[in-house]
Design a protein around this nucleic acid. Sequence first.
DNA 1: ACCAGCACTTAAAGCGCTTTAAGCGGTGTT
DNA 2: AACACCGCTTAAAGCGCTTTAAGTGCTGGT
Lengths: 343, 343
Amino acid sequence: MEELGSDAGANGATPRPRLEDVAARVGLSTASVSLVLRGVPGPSERTRQRVLKAAAELGYRPDRTASALASRRSRLLGVMIDVHSAFQAELVEHLYTAAEEVGYDLVLSTQTRTRDESTAVETLLAFRCEALILLGPVAPASVLAELDRRAPVISVGRRITGADLDVVRSADDDGVGRIVDHLVGLGHRAIAHVDGGKGVIATDRRRGYRSAMRRHGLDDRIRILHGDHTEEAGEGAGRRLIESGDLPTAVVAFNDRSAIGLLTALRGAGVDVPGTVSVVGYDDDTLSRLGCFDLTTVSQEAEEQARRAVVAAVERLDQGRVTPREIVLAPSLVVRGTTARPR
Amino acid sequence: MEELGSDAGANGATPRPRLEDVAARVGLSTASVSLVLRGVPGPSERTRQRVLKAAAELGYRPDRTASALASRRSRLLGVMIDVHSAFQAELVEHLYTAAEEVGYDLVLSTQTRTRDESTAVETLLAFRCEALILLGPVAPASVLAELDRRAPVISVGRRITGADLDVVRSADDDGVGRIVDHLVGLGHRAIAHVDGGKGVIATDRRRGYRSAMRRHGLDDRIRILHGDHTEEAGEGAGRRLIESGDLPTAVVAFNDRSAIGLLTALRGAGVDVPGTVSVVGYDDDTLSRLGCFDLTTVSQEAEEQARRAVVAAVERLDQGRVTPREIVLAPSLVVRGTTARPR
DNA sequence: ACCAGCACTTAAAGCGCTTTAAGCGGTGTT
DNA sequence: AACACCGCTTAAAGCGCTTTAAGTGCTGGT
C-alpha cells in the first residue's frame, strides 16, 4: 500500500510525489485531484475513489507551503509559549486538540533567555499564522494592539486594559477570594499574602486578597509581603515571616512555586504546616500534586481556556467577528493537605 | 503610495508588502531586491542601501512559505518534543540559539496524550522541515530508519541500535557509574538502585549501576528495585525499602523525579536523608535544585547536546555527510545535599 | 574600431498548489 | 430543432518568492 520508489529522501532520491503525479496516475487534471483531496464537493464518486487510491499508493502528502501560498490561507494558529512553564505546557496540550477539531494546525514558538517575545511572534508571523494565541504575554498593551492589526491576537491568562483585543483568562481576584473564603471558613483570621510583584496578574491576585479580607471584616489583618513568581521569593518571604516573630495562621502565596518556597522555609524552621500555619498556592502545578507538597491551590481550567482561545481565533478568522471579547473563567479551589483549622 | 482597496488583513489593514512593492519603490526588479535581502553578493553598494531603506520603510517581511517553495529549501529544522519535560524544555532553549547561529529556524511539534509521535513528526514533515531532531523518540528503530529516508533524523538522548542514523546522547551508564564512584568514595557499600523500567535509557542506567558495583567488588551488594520515571514509582520503591527492614545506606534512582518520590517516602517515614540514607537522582531537573530537595544528581549537558544535534543536522544538509554518527557526551556529577558519609 | 571582460541588472521560468471561468456531453423543455 | 441547464472536469492564471541565463553599459587592451 505504502511504497516509495527506492531510497528516497535524505540521500540521493526520488522527490516526494506531487499533485501532478497523482493526477497523471489516474489520468485526471491536478484540479480534480486537488478538489478530491480537500473534500470539496463536485467530483463524482468514482473519481473520488480512484484519486484516493492513487494518492495512497504513491504515499502522497500535500505540501503545506504550496497550498498556503496558493490559497492565501495557512490554516495555522501561532502559539507563543514559555517552554519552561508547566502550566503553559498543559495549555498547549489542549490547544492542539481544540485546534484539530476546527481544522487548524498549530505552530509553536517559545521565548527563551536569548529570544524575546517579539522575536517569537515575528517567527509566527513569518510562518503566515492567521491568528496569534499568546500565552501570558508581557508586552505593553500598545504593542499588542499594534500586533493585532497584523493578525488577530488572543491574550491568554493576561488581562489587557486599554487595547481592543481578545482575552481569555481566569478570574484571578475571584480565585484568591475563594482561597480566603476557604481559610476563613476553617477559622483563620490572621491571613497574610506573599505577592507576585508588579505584573498584571500579581496585581489582580493582590486585589482579590484585599477585597476578600475586607469582605470578611478583616481589614486590619491585611498583611502583604513582597515576592515574585519563584521558589526563592517564597523562601525569602517565609524567612521574613519567621523573623518577624509574628506568624500568621495562614499564608496565601502568589503561585505554587512561591508556596513551595514558603513551605520549605517554614518546615525548615520547624514550623508545622498545616498544623501551625496553613499555606495555599495558585495554578495547580504538577508539582503541587506531588505527595511531598500536597498543596492546597487553585486550578485554572487549562482545557477550558485553551478551547475558548481557539474558538475566539476561529470566530475572528472564519466568522468575521471584529469586536473584541474578554472571556473570564471561574477558577476552582483544590483543597489538599496544606490547609487545616488554626490551632 | 501604497493603498489597496478598503479592508484587507485582520481588521481592515493593508495587505503585507511584497517583494514587488519594494522593487517598485526603488525602481528595480524583484530579482535585485531578492538578492539584496538575502545578502547574496552582486548588487552594488548603492542598490543595496536603497533597497534596505525601502524595505524598512515599507515594513517588508519576507514570506517564508513563498521563498521555501521557490528555493526548495525551507531552512527549517523540525524538533519533536514532549512539552511536559523540563529537561527537553532546556534542550529546546539551546536548540534555538544553536540553530540561529547556523541560519536555520526551528519548528516545534509536541506529542500529547492524544497526539502521538508519528503525528508530531508528520506535522514537521508537512512544514517541509529539512531535518528532524527527535528528543527522546520512542518509536522502534525500524520506524526511525524509515523516517530517515524522508529526512535526516537525529535522535537526541536515545541510543538506537541497528538503525543507521545520527544519535546525540550522553553516556547514561557512565553517568550512573560516576554516581556509584562518588558513593563508594564516601564509604558506602550497600548501594541500591531503583530502576526506570523497560526503556532503552533505563536499561543503560541499570547496566551502568551493575558494572560500577562490580568494578568496586560489590557484586553481592547489587540490589535493584523496579520502578519507572515518576514520583509515584520512587515513593513506592521507598516504601518497599522501608518495609524490607533492610535499608541500604544509599539509593541511586533512575531520575530526579523518582528520587524525589524516594525522598518523600523516606523522610515521611522518619528516615534521615542523607544522615541514614543517601539519595541520588539523574537529570539535574530544575526541581532538584530546589532548596527543599537539594538533590545530588547528574547533569546531562543540555547545551552541548543541543549544539551537537544542530551541527549533525547541518552536516547532513549542507556538507553532504551520509554516514551516520553517534555522539556520546560525558555527563557530569552534581553533588548537592542528599549524599553524605554513611553512619 | 573591435572585442574581451567586468560589474551589475533583469526577464522569465518555475516551485506545488488553489481557484476561476470555461468546456463538455447529455437531459429536459419549449 | 433550439435552448437552457446540469453534473462533472479542466485549462490557465496566479500565490510571493528564487534562480538562471541573458542582457546592459562600461573600461581597457589591441
